[in-house]
Design a protein around this nucleic acid. Structure first.
Length: 450
RNA sequence: GUGGGUAUGGCCUAGUUGGCUAAGGCGUCAGAUUGUGGCUCUGAAGAUCGUGGGUUCGAGUCCCAUUACCCACCCCA
């Protein structure tokens, strides 16, 4: 028989159990944090009617979407979570309570060239708040608070949530008479950190067709830096010339005003006029989050305010604000840079029960007793040499092995062995459960800051 | 989509101007050690050198094609 060589497609991430357990830990933190802000979980189909997913049209989506037919159906795999959300909200808008707050952590698919940290199948962890007709600016201020909580939950403190407002940029370009080119300009300016001011200027002059004076004016504007207060007061100087610009400044002020009340420290938040986001559907506040010690990773979480979520499906005006964390990429980079905390439990069980008698009944009931304390317990029932049982425990990296032989059973006790230290003690099942619980419940961050 | 590079046991690599049974490390399995894992030592299994063709007495090595993968750009998370 011919053997088919097993392989995983390029651009698809497949993890070994210990890594998968760490990955799931991140997912758990995201779920808990999102839920704690009153976001409802949402799951939508991975496959949708191609027409639905391609409603927005646009070159990149069309090129990258996985599309196929089954019978007469024209189908496609979702390439983000926002379009399915738009369909969902449009479909159920009469049953939903607005503002509608949902989180979704799901895989999305993009048929593009895979690269380091760029996947064809990857997890996005999205939250969005959708309003009916209107949505208060307070929601835009809450988003950074949630991002802050998530990253703190991961164990990080050296990160910065950078915020800007597209109305400020658009209004500013209007002042220069460049309103029609604002999309191209934003995409270019967004790359400032990556390619530098000189190159940005070159692209503005050559590709966007700006005059020398216009380009200089833009570069001077985005060079405004400093504390949040300093940047905001520098913006004051431009007020009164353009209505859109003035609105943007007011919104930015509103977003920054309540940060302290939300518990976001000043050092984790920065007004940054270079942030634009390439996507053109953002209309107001935009967010980007970077790890201060790893700027090369780029943005690990981004999003913003949009004015009309579901315009392709219904007449209703549904404004919203949302962010997306590229979980797969984040995890990949963290792992690659060795930032995942090795102390974080990565075993599928907290304890492995090793029976050493032919009669399995005492071991079975011991395992059940330990489980009743909320522990994850595996019973090892294979008829192997004791040494091999220990080697298995070692390979799984379980923190504890619980040995149960004739002697222990006779005394109604079990031997609890700490696999890391090698220490072993004779305990009652209840005492053993407490020792394991104490070790398991220690608060260990997922990410180790270096 | 555009441009460049790589391909050798499960993984990482060595392999000289083309020349004997393709070398090493990690991992796997067995034993030293029969109720105690990791460390050490000993041994074993495991490769039609991505695939197809060509040049040659002889190809892992040179040439052509092809496929896959990697990197950069584009775009993004």
């Amino acid at each position: 028989m011919d053997i088919i060589k097993p392989r995983t497609l390029s651009g698809f991430m497949e993890l070994l159990p210990d890594k998968q357990i760490r990955f799931e830990k991140l997912v758990q933190i995201l779920r808990d944090t999102y839920a704690s802000y009153g976001f409802a979980p949402l799951d939508t189909p991975a496959i949708e009617d191609a027409q639905i997913l391609l409603a927005k049209g646009g070159g990149e989506t069309e090129k990258q979407i996985y599309r196929f037919t089954k019978g007469d159906s024209d189908l496609a795999l979702r390439f983000d979570l926002t379009v399915p959300l738009a369909k969902y909200v449009a479909l159920h808008c009469n049953e939903l309570a607005f503002p509608f707050r949902r989180f979704q952590i799901s895989k999305v698919y993009r048929g593009e060239r895979a690269q380091r940290g760029r996947f064809r199948e990857f997890y996005q962890a999205d939250i969005d708040i959708i309003g009916d007709g209107k949505l208060d600016i307070l929601n835009e201020a809450e988003i950074p608070a949630i991002i802050y909580k998530v990253f703190r939950g991961f164990g990080l403190s050296r990160f910065q949530i950078r915020v800007n407002n597209r109305k400020i940029l658009s209004g500013f370009y209007d002042m220069l008479g460049l309103g029609d080119k604002s999309g191209d300009i934003m995409r270019t300016v967004d790359k400032l950190d990556k390619i530098g001011a000189d190159k940005v200027k070159l692209i503005l002059l050559e590709d966007c067709g700006l005059t020398e004076a216009q380009a200089d004016e833009i570069l001077r504007f985005i060079a405004i830096r400093g504390t949040n207060g300093e940047v905001l007061s520098a913006l004051e100087g431009y007020l009164g010339k353009n209505e859109l610009f003035d609105t943007g400044v007011a919104e930015l002020k509103a977003v920054t005003a309540n940060l302290a009340a939300f518990g976001v420290p000043e050092e984790n938040f920065a007004v940054d006029l270079t942030i634009a986001r390439g996507l053109d559907y953002y209309t107001g506040t935009v967010y980007e989050t970077t790890l201060l010690d790893h700027p090369e990773i780029g943005s690990v979480c981004s999003g913003g305010r949009y004015d009309n979520l579901a315009g392709y499906y219904i007449e209703k005006q549904l404004p919203g604000v949302g962010i997306s964390i590229g979980l797969t990429r984040l995890f990949y980079v963290l792992d690659e840079q060795d930032l995942l905390n090795p102390a974080l439990p990565s075993a599928p069980a907290d304890a492995l029960v090793l029976p050493m008698t032919d009669d399995m009944a005492p071991a079975i009931s011991l395992a059940e007793t330990l489980r009743s304390f909320g522990l994850r317990v595996q019973l090892y029932g294979e008829q192997k040499k004791f040494k091999q049982k220990m080697a298995y425990a070692n390979k799984l990296q379980v923190p504890f092995a619980v040995l149960l032989g004739e002697d222990e059973i006779a005394q109604g006790l079990c031997s609890l062995k700490n696999m890391a230290t090698g220490e072993q003690q004779l305990l009652t099942p209840q005492e053993a459960a407490k020792v394991i619980l104490d070790a398991v419940n220690a608060d260990i961050p997922v990410i180790l800051e270096k």
